[in-house]
Simulated scan of single mutants.
Amino acid sequence: MLIGSILRGKGTEVATVPPGATVRDLLEVLAERNIGAVVVSEDGSTIVGIVSERDVVRRLNERGAEILGAPVSSIMTTEVRTCAPDANVDELRQTMTTHRIRHVPVVSDGRLAGLVSIGDVVKSAIEELQTEKAHLVEYIHR
């Protein structure tokens, strides 16, 4: 299965914040959308970084509540792993597991095309297994 098929099912909308947004602004986006990460982008299509709820928690622990007024750029991950819509889901799942990454932006023609979470990847694997099981059961009952 390809990443593009996950995006067809979940959609391509990606929450973004500019690097100058405050961590407080970031938290508002995370809470309002009930999501775990946002892409940091100046224009909504290029990737400057990514920031997750885990990043916020770690920085809160290190620096305290002062971090809430700091810019997102001060806590974001700048070396962002991305994938293309034609990437293989199994390979991405392995990469996400190996590198302990929970969110991977999808890039097509140099532009942000979606965001895939580990939950999306696991869900697709479960659906694939259920489909295979149904085919095997049908085959056995013939």
Rank of each mutant, 00 (worst) to 15 (best):
S45R: 12
L92M: 15
R100C: 08
E42H: 13
I126S: 05
E42M: 06
V116I: 15
T78A: 09
V14P: 02
A125W: 01
S124R: 13
G119A: 04
R100V: 02
M76L: 12
G119T: 13
R54M: 12
E13V: 15
L7V: 13
S73Q: 13
V51S: 08
D55S: 11
I35F: 07
E79V: 07
L26F: 09
R81K: 07
D43N: 11
G36S: 01
G69S: 14
V104I: 10
V122T: 06
A15D: 13
R8Y: 14
V17Q: 13
M76I: 05
P71L: 11
G44N: 11
V104E: 02
G114L: 14
I50R: 07
I126C: 01
V29Q: 03
V106Q: 09
N34S: 15
V107M: 05
I126T: 04
M96F: 12
I35Y: 02
R81L: 15
N34E: 13
S73R: 15
G44A: 12
Q130G: 05
G20P: 03
G44R: 10
I35M: 06
G64H: 10
E79Y: 07
A37F: 00
R59I: 05
I118N: 06
L60A: 03
M1K: 10
A21C: 06
L60Y: 05
A113L: 08
T98I: 02
E127W: 03
V38D: 05
E66D: 01
V40F: 00
G64D: 05
R93D: 12
G119R: 15
V107H: 08
V23I: 08
S124V: 00
T95V: 15
N61E: 00
M1S: 15
G4V: 09
A113H: 12
I50P: 04
E62K: 10
K133M: 04
E138F: 04
S117I: 03
S124W: 02
I35T: 05
A84M: 09
K123E: 13
A37N: 02
E32R: 14
A70H: 09
I47W: 01
I67H: 06
I67D: 07
L92T: 05
V48N: 11
G11N: 04
E32F: 06
V116P: 01
P85N: 11
V137A: 10
K10P: 06
M76V: 09
V14K: 07
S52G: 09
L60F: 04
T98F: 07
C83L: 09
M1P: 12
A87T: 11
L115W: 12
A65Y: 00
I6P: 03
L30P: 05
S52M: 08
T82N: 08
E128F: 00
S108N: 09
V40D: 04
Q94K: 10
E138W: 10
G9A: 15
A113S: 13
D43Y: 01
L2M: 13
N88I: 08
E132F: 00
I6S: 03
T95M: 14
E53L: 00
K123I: 03
D55A: 10
